[in-house]
Amino acid sequence: MQVSKTVTAWAGAAAVISLALAGTAKADALSELATAAAKGPEVLWYESSKESQIDKVIAAFNKKYPNVKVKHIRVVGGNKMAGRVVQEVQGRGYTADLVSSGAAQTWALNDRNYLLKTDWSKLGVPKRVTPTDFAVAIAASVYVILVNTKKVPAEEQPKSWDDLTKKKWMGRIGGWVRAGAHTQMSKVWGQDKAEAELRKFVALKPFLFKSTFPMAQQVAAGEVDVAIGFFHTAQPPISAGAPLKRIALDPAPMHTIYTAVTKSARNKAGATLFLSWLVTSTGAKAYEDATNRGSHLLEGTRTHALVKEAKTAEYPAEETGTYRKVAKKFNKILSSAGAAR
C-alpha cells in the first residue's frame, strides 16, 4: 500500500517536474506541482529548530497550499543530522523528503548522490538562492558582536573587528568553541590575516562555549562582557529583556543554511513545492519570524537588512573543500587557547 502510493507520487512528481522543465509557465508549473503534491504522502522535513517555531512556518505554508501536508521532525543539527540521513538511506532505502543543514553537510550528502537535482529557475526561484541544482539557500547564521550593556557602557562597546582584539577584553570576551567566524573571514582577509587575527583573539584568553545559544545567555548574565556570536541565537534573551545588544560586524562572516530535496523522498512534488515556497518573500519572512534565522539573500527580511550595508564573508558552496581544511586548522589553534592560560 505504502509502496504503491510512493510510486504513484514519484511518477506524478516526475511527470510534473518534466512538464515544468519542458517550459510551461511558472505559475502553471507550481499549480501542477501542488496537485501532484496533494496526492502524495506527508512531506517529512528534518530541521533543527524547535517544533513550536516550525509549526508556524508550516501553518503559513498551508494557508496557501492547504492540501499539502508537511511534517517537521526536529533532528539534532549539524553532522549528526547528515549522519542520520546516510544511515536511513543505507538501512531502509529512504529518509526525509527535505533536509535542512549547512553547506558542509549538504555537499557531503550530495557527494553520496542522495540529493535530487531540480531546475529551480523554472519554478521561479531566484538564482541567488540556488547556487547549485541540488540545494536552496533558505537562511543564514550571521556572526555579530554581542555586548552586555550593563557591564560595558556605550562608548566602550566594540564596533569593529579591530575593537574586538583590544587588550581590555582580556578574559572578558567569549566565543564559540569552533573557529567558524575566523574561518569564513579568511575568504575575505586571506588565510594569513585570518590566522593572525585568530591568534590575537586566542591571546585574549577567550571563554569558549560549546554552543552559541548558551553563550548569548552567558553574555546576558555577565559571565563574559562581549562575545562573537550569532544574530539569531541572541534573540531569546533580548526578547526576554536581557541587557544584551547585537552590533553588526563588517565584514560579516556567516554560515548559509541550505535545504535539499532527497532522491528517496516519498513526496518529491510536495518537497519541491514547499522548498520553492520557503524562498518566496512570504515563506522567507515566516521562517525568519519563527526561527530568528533569516535569509540575507532575500529582501524584506531582518537578516537582509542587517548585512546589506556590510560585506559578507563566506566560502561559496563549491569551495567547501577549502573551507574544511581551513576550519580544521583554525579549530586546532582555537583549542590551544587552554594551553595559553
Binding site: V76, G78, N79, K80, A82, G83, V86, G102, A103, A104, Q105, T106, W107, A108, L109, V177, R178, K210, T320, Y323, R324, K325, A327, K328, N331
Partner: peptide
Amino acid sequence: SQVVYLANDSPTGLPEY
C-alpha cells in the same frame, strides 16, 4: 569533548564515526 566535536562539528559535514 573530542567525541562531541567529531560527531557534531567536524568540518567534514558528516560525523566522523
